[in-house]
Design a protein around this nucleic acid. Sequence first.
DNA 1: TGTACATCAGTGAACGCGCGTTCACTGATGTAC
DNA 2: TGTACATCAGTGAACGCGCGTTCACTGATGTAC
Lengths: 223, 223
Amino acid sequence: MAQNDTVTRILDTAEVLFAERGFAETSLRTITSKAKVNLAAVNYHFGSKKSLIQSVFARYLDPFTERFHGALDELEARYAGKTIPLEELLETMARCVLEVPAERNSLKVFMRLLGLAYSQAQGHLRRYIQEEYGGVFTRFTALIRQATPELPDAERFWRLHFMLGTVIFTLSGLDALRDIAEKDYDEHVTVRDLVRRLRPVVVAAMQAPLPAPAPAPADAQEA
Amino acid sequence: MAQNDTVTRILDTAEVLFAERGFAETSLRTITSKAKVNLAAVNYHFGSKKSLIQSVFARYLDPFTERFHGALDELEARYAGKTIPLEELLETMARCVLEVPAERNSLKVFMRLLGLAYSQAQGHLRRYIQEEYGGVFTRFTALIRQATPELPDAERFWRLHFMLGTVIFTLSGLDALRDIAEKDYDEHVTVRDLVRRLRPVVVAAMQAPLPAPAPAPADAQEA
DNA sequence: TGTACATCAGTGAACGCGCGTTCACTGATGTAC
DNA sequence: TGTACATCAGTGAACGCGCGTTCACTGATGTAC
């Protein structure tokens, strides 16, 4: 067995199992037996289960942020100080998300992991991701702000999270949804196909009319 | 202690803890000690942890489906065979979702639970919800279909799930998002406020232009 | 070139712990005769 | 009215199990002199 073969096998196996069942529901014994690796090897190489989880994320997020920063640099250079259109920004982000795990052949796993990062307890993980990768997200939202000057800041904040929810929810629950879709419409759906369907929806959502103003606090009875 | 006081205390405590940390991460010992109830009482009254989880959902979903069916009956009667507009359907669903837990004073908990039902492993739970409550969802989507005749069936299917993702993701991660929003925009956000913001976004998303047709399978090289 | 030592990936077995569940039991209340 | 029995909510203690982690150890490879 080569030098760091063990590390790679642990990560490869862990990411699939985590994506399938979540973090708490995946034991180190399951991971190491499936990876054909000694149980103690996880603690030897990673120190703890927590930091194995973080390493699984880092293997996706490190190349992603690097590529995404690069793509934004390129966009900013191309537009030379002028405002980058919303569609172009969204397109760029989608492209980076699609490209990174394509190299690792498991976009589905990446999306499931992102969904889990939000929905599972794992406070340490949210803190880790925020600290390590918060920067590129801040940069992106600043550009989105220039592209949508008509939106109040708070409205833009919420709409971005609405859309984040759409994407993460859809792509991370993809397997279940795909089963239903194929049974009902016998159509085989790929991730790229979904991204194609998502595009007009996300753009329309970001450009939707502003909501009605909040009603006054209900001190007064309705007439 | 009154007859079924114990059952209620278990359910009240369990739903809050489940919503905070998920199912696997909440032990019966934590629930029973916080509820000031004997550990064995959960298995005595509910039989197992699984069926406690299902009971927690039933306490929300039973009144919700009853009310939602009623509201749809009323809508159908009012429109007397004519097509019910999309906005009216969405509005009705939103109203029912908002009203039910308002009686129990914990919409936030309800939303977190729905989010968990999708994202946590818990296969038994998805099966249970599908079997018990699939019917009302089927009825609702049939009405949505009449209201959006211009959408291909598959497109409508996906857009409904996109929007489901938006709502569940936003409302179930509300606490975290609210913290960020209040820090950045010092604005206190209520659930009703979010629903007001969601309305135009969801309508715009459902009415977005159709996506570009899928590209031909990549046998041919790009020119 | 040979020997002693250091480094390091990996191992096998055990540790203590918290988990869901079980079981024999209690004590209060209702029911039959 | 009194007694025997059944029912049922609730209890305390223990069960076995799987968990993450630890630790003493092995064996291969590299390094110093």
